[in-house]
Amino acid sequence: MAKERNYLMKLFISFFKIGLFTFGGGFAMIPLIEKEIVDDNGWATKQEILDIFALAQSVPGAIGVNTAVFIGYKLKGIVGALVALLGVISPSIIIMVVIAHFFIQFRANIYLDRAFNGLKAGVIGLICAATWQIAKTAVIDRFGLIVALSAFVLSAFGIIPVVWVIVLGAFSGYLYYRTSKGRSAR
């Protein structure tokens, strides 16, 4: 029982940290999720995290919230899902309530503004690192490289909605590996 509570506490703290340091949208948290979930706690493999991330983008809801619920549910069922969810949104709630309360003063603070500029630069670096890290796991053959580049172009220029890019990827993966499995592609 105490062990169980410890486990849930660790889950909460991990996602609290992830929520606290997720600046600039869900993608920036990939390196942090990998560290917390894969490296530090061994709760999932790198590939599982990638699959969860793809799923998190394909269903309604914010990416960070969806990822937390997925991982929490996978580890400890409904209770785990709720604990991870609470963990990931608690920092937002606390910080936004404080900011809403002192809204006017916050906007004018020059020091906060400077710190945020530094943070934004760091976020760029983190998202680039995320691209590199997941490319190492996810792009394993020439087919993968072509799909990754196509998805990049389709999404960067806003050609079709993200949901459709993912659906297209799934479809072409199914077709490609289905037809090439006899020829040893993987």
């Binding site: 793809a54 799909v147 993966g173």
Partner: peptide, 22 residues
């Protein structure tokens, strides 16, 4: 499994695109 083998590289492209946008 095949579907996800196609989705994984898509995620790489999406994150790369987000990096450019940010």
């Amino acid at each position: 499994q095949w579907g996800f083998a196609g989705i994984r590289p898509v995620v790489v492209g999406l994150v790369g695109a987000a990096a450019i946008m940010v």
